[in-house]
Design a protein around this nucleic acid. Structure first.
Length: 939
RNA sequence: GCGGAUGUGGCGUAAUUGGUAGCCGCGCCAGACUUAGGAUCUGGUGCCGAAAGGCGUGGGGGUUCGAGUCCCUCCAUCCGUACCA
């Protein structure tokens, strides 16, 4: 029997494709074909190399790319590396190795692995974010952001020049700009400002701006993080605590684009849950902003509410600890306690804040506000459940109709006033009535109105009286853009007397200088700050020493691939117009609110400046499910010193006695059972006394372990590499097996149990077509209708399934096909060669080898994908299952496919077998669904 | 709390979108070839039952001639998010 020489053919064709450039894209100047741009999410080249989870998506996009190529498209399927980032830098801090060296090594390893899998990435398009020829353009885009402001009326970014012109003519009159300040100025005010004053003022408008705001400071990483990089109060990378401290930082005014980021979601084909996550993250809410006067002060406190209908139910006001008026208004006798409270609240870490979200504490300021509509006196409190960064940093407390206000009022013995009539069962001793149902009561001119109408009426009244206005707020914040780290893009800014100016575009890139130490200084300066001859320019100016965050380079990289070596522009217009946007983008859902939001923002911004022609970067997006790793544990009772032979004892023994001991691979035999002799060693590893232990069942030799499934990660030690699999079974088997595992979007634990089945399928196909001497057995015999039907069923299935990304079912369709062909030992040219073309996207080396053996001289990927013919798919009879009252019987009756309902019905009634089934019962109804089923309804 | 997803044999899964539940593969059982098998081939394999037959898509209810699929309700698991006024 011939062996299937996968090792030999895989290296052979990988080399051939590389030399021939088979999978390179064609420039739009030359190509007349439609384009197809497939993209994988940008990987960070980590030192661990690829694990089996990464290729899942890469294989899927590779199949798409190869399929579309066979369909006649000009395909761009590139790969690059998001090569700036913390791991390489942390490694540099530990070892002194320059991050670029580590990064280069890791990239080489990634590339080898990708090639080993037969992934046909276009090597001419490869990019790296840490390459100066790339980050030159990242810096260039930053300068464009610095040079723009956002016009709310035109709903687009405009040049700062135009803003300056407007200010000099009209001041802020008729200016609908997104800005950090509320004050209005006149043209005279503007014109009388000095140059530094003007520049300072303009920072309130620039889309890349410098501001002094509370930021997520991570002492362990020595850097500031964006909201998207903080999870549960700790850093997403490394899990270090994060605290809020005010610092001078670069931010990007992404909030200006909030509405367009929301609206754009309706134009793209993304999974609905992902769109929903972005909508929630942006968090648009409509409400009323209004001012309460403060007794004894001449300025009021602005609050924001989405429930203005409950305005008459206000029992207190709460200010965020950071609120500028919090201390100022406090009465003399309360000043001390307020001060102490604020100090304590501000020094708390984010994690502490989160850990007691149920505890709503606060402190009374000793002063009262005046209700703007009924003149009532309302106590003002300071409370840290009020966030400084949202709305106005102050809220009106309506304990009867808001959960938090209810808890706060109860804790601090404040009043509760009911202004919406709840349903009868509701008990105000137990909680607030928060539903927007019921009629308004005790509220002057609102009495008897519904919530919905009440809201509109209050807003209208308040606006008429000039007390406040309708307002839309967004949950998400401007993105903090500076990092106090070494291994990132330098921010292209220089300071003249403390005022930031953009580096001239002709001086880009601002390259990263060499440093002696990669360590963050810990006082908020980046390592760059210590290189004084880099920082201090000959003309007396200073360079910005912060670097850009990890997401800077990935926010526009998809625009670079179509023209990756252009050094005149980030992407020539013709190339951008032809290739963008990305037809198919595949990656994990973890980028939902970070990368995907920033990339959309930069795309819209570049569109506003006419640099590109598309507003949305990714037309169709798909999230692959994560591949999970297994870890194993053994259950023990530490009190009675018993080890269990089977998992599932958690609830059988007292909680304090129960323990799960993690078992590493070295204590597990090749059937997955625990090796009993290792019990003592395991106990010692877990620092347990190992004497006198017993097995629950000492007679059974096999010990089943419990399973944890979690994300594959180096730290959990559950990572599986594709390398060994590829060596044993070959890349084609590995590719098909990963696809065979199940639907692409479902998370699934990695499990190699089935890989031999996929491998023997390929072997069967090989043996069907190739004899022992390696010669192809193709024949030119006449093809039967049945064989044609099997072939065309296959073509149809593959075509349909690829469009749906249902690759697992495609693999099984190939298996069914080969099983059928094997039954008759069919090796006919007209059947087998089209099937090989179908297989090519999935098992490219296998297909290429057979294709070339068949006497062809150019790659199978230069062929045309076969098209199925419906005429071969239909058979002329259908075997109807016969149901009695909806239950399927054993009886089957064949009828011509073209026979209509009535004809079939007539014959069914006459049929002997049917009458036997009826057992003499009366037939009430006969249902015939042509091509599907026959159902007899009897009494 | 809120939002989303998922639940089908021992396991991974499939089901023409309301029409024969369990395709394909793993595992398991039996057999063939073999010095040997973690190779290959053949047959079997949802569960209960000797069989006839009955039961069966997380649980309960409903719509329908007919429900894995639609509706209501409950449960479990996973993911995201969290004081957003």
């Amino acid at each position: 029997m011939a062996t299937y020489p996968f090792q030999e053919i895989e290296t052979k064709w990988q080399k051939y494709w590389k030399e021939e450039g088979t999978f390179r894209h064609v420039s739009p100047e030359i190509s007349t074909d439609p384009k197809y741009y497939v993209l994988d999410m940008f990987p960070y080249p980590s030192g661990a190399g690829l694990h089996v989870g990464h290729p899942l998506g890469y294989i899927a996009t590779d199949i798409l790319a190869k399929y579309y190529k066979l369909k006649g498209y000009n395909v761009l399927h590139p790969m690059g590396f998001d090569s700036f980032g913390l791991p390489a830098e942390n490694y540099a801090i530990e070892t002194g190795t320059h991050p670029s060296i580590t990064t280069e090594k890791n990239i080489q390893r990634y590339k080898e692995q990708l090639e080993m899998l037969g992934l046909g990435y276009d090597d001419t398009a490869e990019i790296r974010t840490s390459d100066p020829s790339y980050y030159k353009w990242t810096q260039w885009i930053f300068i464009e952001l610095f040079d723009c402001w956002y016009d709310n009326k035109l709903q687009r970014a405009r040049r700062i020049d135009e803003l300056v012109f407007h200010l000099s003519k009209n001041g802020t009159e008729n200016l609908f700009a997104v800005t950090s300040i509320q004050d209005s100025i006149t043209a005279d005010d503007w014109n009388s400002m000095s140059e530094p004053e003007q520049q300072k003022y303009l920072l309130n408008f620039r889309l890349a701006y410098l501001s002094f705001t509370p930021v997520n400071w991570c002492p362990a990483l020595g850097t500031v993080l964006s909201n998207e990089e903080v999870k549960d109060g700790v850093s997403e990378r490394g899990g270090h605590p994060v605290i809020r401290v005010p610092m001078r930082q670069w931010s990007l005014r992404i909030t200006a684009y909030a509405d367009r980021l929301l609206a754009g979601l309706d134009t793209v084909e993304w999974p609905e849950p992902l769109k929903e996550m972005q909508r929630n993250w942006i968090g648009k809410s409509e409400g009323l902003e209004l001012a309460f006067e403060v007794e004894g002060f001449n300025h009021g406190i602005e609050i924001f509410t989405t429930r203005p209908d409950t305005l008459f139910g206000v029992c207190f006001l709460s200010l965020a600890p950071e609120h500028p008026l919090a201390l100022e208004i406090s009465s003399i006798e309360h000043k001390k306690s307020v001060e102490a409270y604020i100090e304590k609240a501000l020094s708390r870490s984010e994690r502490d804040r989160i850990s007691d979200t149920k505890e709503l504490n606060g402190v009374f300021t000793g002063v009262y506000a005046i209700h703007p509509l009924n003149g009532n006196r309302i106590p003002i409190w300071v409370a840290d459940y009020v966030l400084a960064g949202y709305g106005t940093g102050a809220v009106m407390g309506v304990p009867a109709h808001d959960d938090r206000d209810f808890v706060f009022a109860k804790k601090n013995s404040l009043n509760l006033k009911i202004v919406i009539e709840p349903n009868k069962q509701h008990d105000f001793n137990k909680g607030a009535w928060v539903l927007k149902e019921g009629l308004i009561i005790d509220s002057d001119f609102l009495n008897g109105l519904s919530v919905e109408i009440g809201i509109q009426k209050v807003i209208q009244t308040v606006e008429e009286k000039g007390l406040g206005q309708r307002k839309i707020n967004f949950r998400f914040r401007d993105a903090i853009f500076s990092r106090q780290r070494y291994w990132g893009e330098p921010i292209p800014i220089i300071y003249k007397d403390g005022i930031p100016y953009a580096v001239s575009k002709s001086d880009l890139p601002v390259t990263l200088p060499e440093v002696i130490s990669y360590k963050p200084t810990g006082n908020g300066d980046s390592p760059l700050a210590s290189i004084s001859d880099w920082v201090n320019l000959p003309n007396g100016y200073q360079r910005e020493t912060n670097t850009m965050p990890g997401w800077a380079g990935s926010s526009w990289y998809f625009l670079r691939y179509p023209d990756s070596s252009n050094n005149q522009f980030f992407c020539a217009n013709a190339n951008e117009k032809y290739w963008m946007n990305v037809d198919f983008y595949l990656g994990g859902a973890e980028h939902a609110v970070g990368h995907l939001l920033y990339a959309r923002f930069w795309t819209k911004f570049l569109y506003d400046l006419n640099h590109i022609t598309h507003q949305e970067p990714f037309q169709r997006l798909f999230n692959q499910g994560m591949i999970l790793g297994y870890r194993y544990f053994l259950e023990v009772d530490i009190e009675r010193k018993i080890a269990f032979n089977k998992p599932g004892n958690e609830n059988k023994i007292p909680k304090n006695n129960y323990k799960k001991l993690e078992v590493k691979q070295d204590f597990i035999d090749n059937k997955g059972f625990f090796i009993k002799e290792n019990l003592n060693l395991l106990l010692e590893r877990n620092n347990l006394e190992s004497l006198e232990w017993k097995w629950e069942d000492s007679n059974t030799f096999e010990v089943e372990l419990g399973l944890y499934t979690d994300k594959m990660s180096k730290s959990l030690g559950n990572v599986v590499n594709p390398d060994d699999m590829c060596k044993t079974y070959g890349a084609d088997t590995f590719r098909m097996y990963e696809m065979f595992l199940g639907p692409l979007d479902q998370p699934k634990p990695w499990n190699t149990n089935g890989i031999s089945g996929v491998h023997s399928f390929l072997k069967r196909w090989w043996n069907l077509m190739v004899d022992e001497s390696g010669k192809l057995l193709l024949t030119d015999e006449i093809v039967t209708n049945e064989e044609n039907r099997f072939l065309h069923q296959l073509i149809k299935k593959v075509t349909d399934d690829i469009e749906k990304l249902s690759f697992n079912t495609t693999v099984s369709a190939f298996m069914i096909f080969v099983n059928k062909m094997n039954e008759s030992k069919c090796c006919k040219r007209l059947i087998m060669l089209p099937a090989v073309i179908c297989l090519a996207p999935f098992a490219p080396h296998f297909a290429e080898e057979i294709w070339m053996k068949a006497g062809n001289t150019r790659s199978v990927f230069l062929e045309k994908f076969p098209i199925y013919d419906d005429n071969f798919l239909v058979s002329n009879t259908f075997e109807y299952p016969i149901q009695i009252n909806g239950k399927t019987s054993n009886l089957r009756l064949s009828f011509d496919i073209n026979k209509n309902k009535d004809e079939i019905g007539q014959e069914v009634i006459k049929n002997e077998g049917v009458n036997l089934l009826l057992k003499g019962k009366r037939l009430l109804k006969l249902i015939v669904v042509p091509g599907r089923i026959i159902n007899l309804v009897i009494e």
